[in-house]
Design a binder for these strands. Structure first.
Lengths: 254, 254
DNA sequence: TCGAATTTGTGCGTATGTATC
DNA sequence: GGATACATACGCACAAATTCG
């Protein structure tokens, strides 16, 4: 009955050593051949055991060097439904600055024609011109979030804010930029899903393909007309981020 | 250069057959031994190819029967920040009923002592008594959502609503039940993360371990005191559900 | 600078167990 | 109950990366 296979027993053994603090973060773990000899199985068994711990984010492998205990940083909470005060920028930025980290981003804008999916989300016809901006948000130089944003040129085309990151009003966030051209946007509608990173996303985030990500589909609406004015795909590493929605009531609040 | 390994070539071949519509949803695909013979490799190769297509949700395996083309249902949007009208029940239930599906659930309640995590979320001391309820939500008999809910007995202990699913006020949802004892709760705070299903969760959801899930940590607060009155862990299958937050402004709204 | 030893990564095969028809 | 089909575990061979003398 209770014949747990060797590779699971080895994984359990190693997990216990790590969680009990027997081995510290960054420390090297036994090599495949050492484990194989210690337990009396072939290398494949030990390797599969390590595979489990890697999936659990407890261990990181460095080819040619060995297996090492992964430093366990608790996932950070990203408050998404807080009204952003003017000039603060995006939720990630707010959070990173709070944590005393260096927040920066790379971006690239280009005009394009809306594909079927984006057109549907923006309430326009497929093929209509949009401005597409691709962001990589960095924390202390490490990529932590991907954002792909689309804005219909029918909304921003004749204004100074056509390009999100350029001009006198560059880089101040969707709400503030829209305010410049007299459009008031409310809190965005966000659709959150969980999936595995695509090959491209994994590369841009510098993680292994197949890593679990939180994918957020965000849309800002013009508050008075109800028309969509911006939509974005946001990709966050699942093991590092938690998205928070809703506001905890204050004791004395109405 | 372009020596893609056999198991990938076979997967590509099968994927093409499926996406081109050569095989219809529900139809049976070649068995492992058939593929092995057709391509001239051992069974393991064909099996690994199928493993890829299963991860992509294109194929489903039925032991003893064969591999079948999975019907592609688009993930459903679960609106979570809509104020639930009294008597409607949980967001999943609302959604399933809208879709004309049969919504049911199994539940099991028990008193327990709060562990450190739950205590932290409920703002009580670890070890204090709570009522723990484990739900499995079913759509047409298929499990679609797991919910583990905890309520401090300090809040509900002396009332008729101690057990969420029993008594005169059983099964009507957190907000309505709390209203019975004079507690008004606002919209819950929800923390959303993406990860892989644990072994237990995979079993309860009847999916393969390692499936990607959306994990929601929900907490209801007493609106007047700000005190947590209920917290829950909600697990949804990532490939089937999208959680929506925020409300799209109406054209004529203030 | 180079090369040998060590270490991880990948692909594939085989034996055995279990579910279905 | 036998045949067929999928699931799991393990082992081996070779490639790629790293380390170190």
């Amino acid at each position: 009955m209770t014949d747990t296979p060797p590779y699971l027993r080895i994984a359990d053994e190693l997990r216990a050593r790590i969680l009990d603090g027997g081995v510290v973060a960054g420390e090297r773990l036994p090599s495949i051949s050492e484990l194989a000899e210690e337990f009396g199985y072939s290398g494949g068994v030990a390797q599969r055991a390590y595979g489990i711990l890697i999936e659990e984010n407890l261990v990181v492998a460095r080819p040619g060097a060995g297996y090492f205990v992964q430093s366990q940083e608790a996932p950070q909470v990203l408050v998404r439904h807080q009204r952003v005060r003017p000039g603060q920028g995006s939720p990630v930025r707010v959070m990173l600055v709070e944590q005393g980290m260096d927040a920066s981003r790379r971006s690239e804008s280009a005009t394009a024609r809306a594909d079927a999916v984006v057109a549907e989300r923006l309430g326009i016809a497929a093929g209509e011109p949009v401005v597409h901006t691709a962001y990589v948000h960095l924390a202390d130089g490490v990529p932590v979030q991907l954002t792909d944003s689309w804005e219909p040129m029918a909304v921003t085309g004749n204004s100074l804010i056509v390009l999100p990151e350029a001009g006198p009003h560059g880089g101040i966030g969707v709400a503030d930029r829209m305010a410049v051209i007299g459009i008031e946007v409310g809190l965005p509608v966000e659709r959150v899903s969980a999936r595995q990173a695509t090959r491209q996303e994994a590369q841009r985030l510098a993680v292994q393909p197949g890593a679990v990500v939180l994918a957020v589909e965000r849309t800002h609406y013009d508050r008075s007309t109800g028309r969509p004015v911006e939509t974005a795909d946001i990709v966050l590493l699942g093991s590092r981020w938690i998205a928070e929605y809703g506001i905890r009531p204050e004791p004395g609040a109405p």
